[in-house]
Design a protein around this nucleic acid. Structure first.
Lengths: 147, 147
DNA sequence: AAATATTTTTAGGCCAGCCTAATTTCGATG
DNA sequence: CATCGAAATTAGGCTGGCCTAAAAATATTT
């Protein structure tokens, strides 16, 4: 089985392949802030397990299997980012946190968060309660005291 | 510096000390689902760094410093659990997830989540929007279409 | 008090992920 | 086409956190 970090590699490769259609060790290394040597190792693992297509010193691409995983991860990550930013977490922090927790959350939890994001997005108007929450964050007072 | 797992150990010790005033290697091991040998190692680290008081083969307690960390972790964890259960994540899963992400979230994020929990708790009545969210989860339909 | 059971520690290993340094290969350029 | 620089790989190491097995200390039972 793959370790958790593998998912990050797959997603990185997915992103980096957009357009060009392939990517390279160094790009991946830069993207993940890791040394090329480390990428090399991971790539041979990933290719052994059938997630990436690559022969040594050649272009790197994902297999079907790899793309599938990458897309899932991407979606999870995006859900988390949307969720956190909706709550007012600054984008940069939201991205960082999303990236670190996306691999460990239970699918049920992710599903709930996804629903929550949808719930907000499906709102016909910007939800009152979110406004209220913002105000609550600023003032510490709940606008609905006399509700 | 301490690894992330250290926080779990500190919190576990904190919990286990309630009442008795001390705890023991085996208890900690059971609580964290880890072998006693592993606890031994971690304890010597923690005591070297001044978080726990213990001489070999004796009772284990936290130092001031240890208690402080444990309390913070505990609060974070509780916030997360409340937060997730409020959203409808089953308790067991919420606990599991809280435990795994509590160490890695940015403090800003934790703060936001804390506010969110407070926001809900401070509501004079059970918030309408939460009801709506529940319904949305069940039916997939947003109750406010014509809002 | 001796024998036995339990708890704790030590020693030695494993795995994931990272690193550096040395090497190999690729590819661009004179 | 020989050379030289950049990219990739290999080899060897490190750390955190876990493990098992064996040894040592302590506690309990007889």
């Amino acid at each position: 089985m793959l370790g958790r970090r593998a998912e990050d590699y797959l997603e990185a490769i997915y992103e980096l392949c957009r357009g060009k259609g392939y990517t390279r060790v160094k790009e991946i290394a830069d993207h993940l802030k890791v040394k090329p040597a480390t990428v090399s190792e991971m790539l041979s693992k990933l290719s052994r397990e059938g997630y990436v297509l690559y022969r040594k010193r050649l272009f790197v691409t994902l297999t079907e299997k790899g793309v599938e995983v990458a897309r899932e991860v991407r979606e999870r990550r995006e859900t988390l980012i949307k969720f956190l930013t909706a709550l007012g977490v600054p984008k940069e922090i939201a991205e960082r946190d999303a990236c670190t927790i996306e691999h460990v959350l239970h699918e049920v939890t992710v599903e709930k968060l996804k629903m929550f994001v949808k719930f907000i997005e499906n709102s016909p108007i910007y939800p009152k309660w979110l406004e209220h929450f913002e105000e609550f964050c600023k003032t510490g007072k709940h606008p609905c005291r006399f509700f």
